[in-house]
Amino acid sequence: MAKQVVHTVKKGETLGKIAKKYGAKDWKYIYSDPANAKFRKTRPDPNAIEPRDKIVIPPTKAMVQGKYAKDMPRMSISIDADKELVFVQQKWAYTWVEKPGVSKWTSKEKKDFHNAADKAIWARWSGKFKLTVSGASDFARAYKDTVFKVNFDIKYVSSGGHWTVTVTKVPKGSKSPTSSVDWNGQKIKLDSEDTKLKDLQGTGKKDDKQSPFAHEFGHAVGNSKHGPAAHGDEYKAGHANFADKESMMNIGNTLKKRHADHLILELNKMIKDTTWTVKSVG
C-alpha cells in the first residue's frame, strides 16, 4: 500500500478543488473515506472547511500504479487501468500440415487462416466480460467504481509461442482430424474446416452457431478440466452445465461468467489485496 497522503487545506480551497487536484472522481470520495472520520466530526458541513485542516487523501486513479502485466506459460495478461482494459494475448506458433492428396498451404492461406481465427476469437470473446475490483489495495480502492472490459487476441509467431498450433489442410467437408486442445502439452490441433460455423443447436440461426476457433480457444484460455479452473467441455450428459446449450463450451455461442474463472484466478494473483469479479457478460 502506498504511503498515506495528507493534505493541509489552504485558504480558498474547497473539497471539490482538492478532489480535482488529486484526480479523485468527486469530493465525496475524499470526505467519506473512513480515514477522515475525525475530520467529518470536526467539520460536519463539507462546505465549511478551514485553512490548516488536515484531510487524508484516499488512493485515486492519478496516484496509483495502473499498469500491470505478466507472462504465463499459456497466455500473457496485461492490465491498463487508465483504459479500463484487461488484455489477454496468446502467441500461437503454427505448424502447417496437409492431408494426403491435398495441396500445400500457401502463404496467403496461412495468413488467411490465422486472420479468420483471430477475427472469430475477437468477435466472440472480446468486450464481453465486464470486471470490477474490490479489496484493500490502493488499486482496488482507486478503481472500485471502474468497469473493466477484457479483450482477447492471438498473435502469429514463428517460435516461442504459448501454444504450438498444428493446422491440417483437409478436403472441403472433411470431418477429420478431430480438433483438440492439450492443456498440459500446450498444443492445439485445428484444421482448415474450422473456419466454418457449426449449427450444433440445430436452430439454423446465425447467432446460435458456434465457431470452432472460439470453442477451442475457450479451452486454451482456461476452460480445461486439466487446468486450475477444472472445467472444460459441457456438452456431455452429467456435466453440471449440460442443460445450458447456448454456452460456448457446450453447443452454443454464448460466454458465461464461469468461462472467465481461469482469468479471474490469474488476475487475483497480479495485484496484492485485489479481488476481481465478473460483474456481467454480454
Binding site: 470431418k175 477429420s176 478431430t178 450444433l200 440445430g202 470452432p212 467441455d233 450428459a237
Partner: peptide
C-alpha cells in the same frame, strides 16, 4: 468408464463430428 446415449444431429460437437456422415 463413461457411457452416454444421444440423438444424431446434422452437426455434432467436434468429438462426435464424424458420426452424422
Amino acid at each position: 468408464s463413461e457411457t452416454e446415449d444421444f440423438p444424431l444431429m446434422p452437426e455434432l460437437p467436434e468429438f462426435r463430428n464424424a458420426l452424422p456422415d
